[in-house]
């Protein structure tokens, strides 16, 4: 299908338009372990000084490890919640005879497209009233709720591919619907569950606006808010240090993405949507 036409002009054009991105990400690495003379970007010395944030806590800021732990808790908890809830609800939408099932499915599709961020003012006020403002639990619940429609939608798609006959056979073998789900169907969608879990983890790990608004300070601060705070602080401007924190923050994402890129690209592209 590529035919006899030359491909190098295309490759060249793509390389040129991709150059700024590549440049930015290359210097994300380079700048964290080197210094360059003023006004230049060619590094002239190797250093680890930009990584000092790992062992020195800056005054007035929480320890990086505390913040990292928070980010980890935040991302894993939202991923776990999304997984549990959507693997159950997705199954119902795919397979079970429940009154109102079609309406719920339509609702999930609408919510899936619906921008939950518009509700943040109301959610902010509700969390303040119920006392979950500035707590990890509050923002975890909100994030899980926002990611859930996509999760349900994807899980329904995965369940749809499991042959009905397997479930019928299970029922004939005497298993309850619950056992059929747990022992026979769930193992068939394991790859899907894994991909969704990974995806939800990355979404949680990168999330900024929700923690920024709902849990901005103190013990509930996550990495994104911490880093944004560092950058916004005009008194300590140190781009290389920002980048080091950034790289530290982004490392898990890069590793997970490069290992599982094919599965993730499908989901990022909308998965089995539409």
């Amino acid at each position: 299908m590529i035919g006899h036409l030359r491909t190098w002009p295309i490759v060249l054009a793509l390389t040129i338009v991709s150059a700024p991105l590549v440049l930015m990400y290359v210097f994300l690495f380079v700048d964290t372990i080197s210094n360059a003379p003023a006004g230049s970007f060619i590094p002239n010395e190797f250093t680890l000084e930009h990584w000092s944030f790992l062992w020195e806590t800056r005054p007035g800021r929480p320890s990086i490890w505390r913040v990292t732990l928070n980010s980890f808790l935040f991302a894993t908890s939202t991923a776990a919640l999304v997984l549990v809830i959507s693997s159950m609800a997705g199954y119902v939408l795919s397979r079970l005879n429940v009154p109102g099932r079609t309406y719920f499915l339509a609702g999930v599709m609408v919510l899936h497209a619906f921008p939950a961020i518009t509700l943040i003012v109301a959610i902010f006020l509700v969390l303040q009233v119920v006392g979950l403002y500035n707590t990890l639990i509050g923002v975890i619940l909100v994030k899980a709720a926002i990611d859930m429609p996509l999760g349900i939608w994807l899980m329904k798609g995965f369940y749809d591919t499991v042959p009905w006959e397997i479930e019928m056979a299970g029922i004939q073998d005497g298993a309850s619907r619950f056992t059929v789900w747990r022992k026979l169907v769930l193992p068939q969608v394991k790859p899907g569950i894994f991909a969704l879990g990974l995806f939800a983890f990355l979404l949680g790990w990168g999330e900024f606006i929700l923690p920024q608004v709902l849990a901005p300070s103190g013990n509930a601060q996550v990495l994104s808010v911490y880093l944004a705070g560092l950058i916004a602080d005009d008194n300590n401007f140190d781009m290389n240090m920002f980048k080091s924190v950034g790289l530290f923050y982004m490392m898990p994402v890069l590793i997970l993405f490069f290992v599982f890129q094919n599965r993730l690209m499908n989901i990022y592209g909308g998965g089995s949507k539409g």
Partner: peptide, 19 residues
């Protein structure tokens, strides 16, 4: 219910549990 009828079924696709 099906589960209590004790009927053995062989499906066209065999429906073996792949895992």
């Amino acid at each position: 219910p099906s589960q209590e009828r004790n009927v053995g079924v062989v499906f066209q696709s065999y429906a073996l549990y792949p895992h």
